[in-house]
Design a protein around this nucleic acid. Structure first.
Length: 135
DNA sequence: TTAATGACGTGCC
DNA sequence: CGGCACGCCATTA
């Protein structure tokens, strides 16, 4: 798979994230069949954000713990991401160290991968997890 | 060709 | 929960 196709795949998946929901780089990587390329997903987003026509909702992609990546102190990207998320109705909390994170139990969006063959994970039905958690 | 980097993830303390 | 170390891998120096 070329970087171009990788970017396309990432773009396609990220675009599927429903409004008001978030997911992790790692999950995107899994969805496109490359669970070890979590870091490259982020790179793809960086590469795509300024040039995709229907703007890619990169703000809906966070770290595996629901934490927003720093992306550099000088860059306000993280701040913009938080703002964009809140604008969509996603609750963003800030810790002491200024770390911003989202409650994945409430806003997380983790569809099961296709699991072509050999992959354990029941092909029939859906995975039994998450679902509505109301507090 | 080797070394370093990074929008990450997981295991440990 | 906070912080730290190690593993992954394509890209870049």
């Amino acid at each position: 798979m070329d970087s171009a196709e990788f970017h396309a795949a990432v773009y396609d998946k990220v675009r599927e994230i429903p409004v008001g929901s978030v997911t992790s780089y790692g999950h995107i990587a899994k969805l496109i069949g490359m669970p070890r390329h979590s870091r490259h997903v982020g790179q793809a987003l960086k590469f795509l954000s300024p040039q995709t026509n229907p703007p890619i909702p990169w703000q809906r992609v966070l770290g595996a713990s629901g934490t927003i990546s720093s992306r550099g102190p000088g860059s306000d990207g993280a701040q913009r991401q938080r703002d964009a998320l809140e604008a969509e109705g996603v609750e963003v909390t800030v810790g002491r160290t200024g770390e911003m994170r989202v409650d994945l139990a409430r806003f997380g969006w983790f569809p099961a991968p296709v699991t072509t063959a050999g992959g354990r994970r029941s092909t029939s039905g859906e995975d039994t997890e998450e679902e509505d958690e109301d507090a």
